[in-house]
């Protein structure tokens, strides 16, 4: 068996950032409203679509910051 290297692992404080896109969509008081509208979309729709971008940003940042150096 290979010997595990000490510095390896998947723990990183950056991972906490992933909590943001998990929690945001679970808070309906943020988005359950009509106004303001954006391009005709009620807030309920445009804000939840915008959460996709939040998710992408968070996973991308965590990926970059936790990338192993080779």
């Amino acid at each position: 068996m290979s010997t595990p290297e000490k510095d390896r692992g998947d723990r990183s404080p950056w991972n906490w950032l992933l909590i943001v896109p998990i929690i945001l969509p679970l808070l309906p008081f943020l988005y359950n409203a009509n106004d303001p509208r954006l391009f005709g979309f009620p807030r309920f729709y445009w804000l939840q679509l915008a959460f996709i971008a939040v998710g992408v940003a968070c996973t991308t940042i965590v990926y970059r910051m936790t990338k192993r150096r080779r």
Binding site: D10, L18, I22, P25, Q48, G55, Y63
Partner: peptide, 24 residues
């Protein structure tokens, strides 16, 4: 109406979870 839109929060939540769990 709106109740059917649950697919949005659902698919937003999934990816960070996969990132943490399925990768292991």
């Amino acid at each position: 109406g709106a109740t059917g839109f649950f697919a949005m929060p659902y698919t937003v939540i999934t990816y960070p979870l996969v990132f943490l769990v399925l990768i292991r």
